[in-house]
């Protein structure tokens, strides 16, 4: 059974902008998918249609459950199975790392306990294990704002892992990081995909990173799906087709050094 299936998926924002047009796509369980495209091509929208953060029409199913038209409760259940990682990390800067990671457990703990921060020991243990998996458990009681950018993104990954997700969505996870840290974070994501078998979908705009870490590549242009294939079949011409222009040093993480 396929994990994530898009059928005629269209996203139109309240302002009238259609960011995703009639996408048909199947992502199998355990795949490591990289999405590329210019900014504004609909990469973020595609990711957010999976967990219903954008107004989506058509059909998106996650593990057989329909996102379109789901009730609040149903959409929360789908979201609890889908971890998300953000370009700007989206941590509560003033809170400690452990509390940020525990936000991944919100859908699993009783509401009144989460309101007062009385986390069950079991959930704390999972949060700690998630931190260990990304190698920064020693920072568990440090304020998130005291960490470097790379460390903050690993906290973001740990938060997603704490959900014990079946899918991880990463929206430009390295765009705010320097080249060396970018590789570290990409390698973390690759390892998690390999070790835990979590379906991983990553938006990237660095083509060399996409080529180095991706297995399957999806290209978006102006909200349309323009490429879908194995990364081994991808050459510069394909990128040129997706981008609609020549490749520049800005498109490579190495180019930014």
């Amino acid at each position: 059974m396929s994990r994530i299936q898009f059928t005629g998926t269209t996203v139109t924002y309240p302002g009238g902008l259609t960011a995703l047009k009639d996408v048909d796509l199947v992502i199998e369980e355990g795949e490591f998918v990289v999405i590329v495209g210019l900014s504004g091509a609909g990469k973020s929208t595609l990711l957010r249609s999976i967990n219903g953060l954008v107004p989506v029409t058509g059909s998106v199913t996650v593990d057989g459950r329909e996102v379109v038209g789901a009730s609040n409760r149903e959409i929360r259940e789908i979201r609890s199975d889908v971890g998300m990682i953000f370009q700007t990390f989206n941590l509560v800067n003033r809170a400690r790392v452990i509390n940020n990671v525990l936000m991944g457990r919100l859908s699993m703990v009783p509401r009144w306990r989460s309101m007062f921060g009385l986390w069950p020991a079991h959930d704390k243990e999972i949060a700690m294990q998630s931190l260990e998996r990304v190698g920064i458990v020693e920072k568990a009681y440090v304020r998130a704002s005291d960490l470097s950018g790379g460390q903050q993104q690993r906290v973001g990954i740990a938060r997603a892992l704490a959900q014990e997700p079946k899918v991880i969505l990463a929206d430009e996870p390295v765009a705010s990081l320097d080249p060396v840290t970018s590789h570290v974070v990409m390698r973390d994501l690759q390892r998690i995909n390999r070790d835990l078998g979590i379906t991983t979908i990553i938006n990237l705009h660095f083509l060399d990173l996409a080529r180095q870490y991706g297995q399957r590549l999806i290209g978006l242009k102006d909200g349309l799906l323009v490429f879908d294939g194995n990364i081994k079949d991808v050459d510069d011409d394909v990128f040129r087709g997706i981008y609609g222009r020549a490749i520049t040093p800005d498109d490579l993480v190495e180019g930014r050094r």
Binding site: E132, R133, V137, E138, K139, V180, R187, D188
Partner: peptide, 18 residues
């Protein structure tokens, strides 16, 4: 291309802080 190996592939043995 060489990148310093900052993230070893195995889960590092790291003491949990109190």
């Amino acid at each position: 291309m060489t990148v310093p190996d900052l993230a070893p592939d195995a889960i590092p043995d790291m003491a949990r802080p109190a």
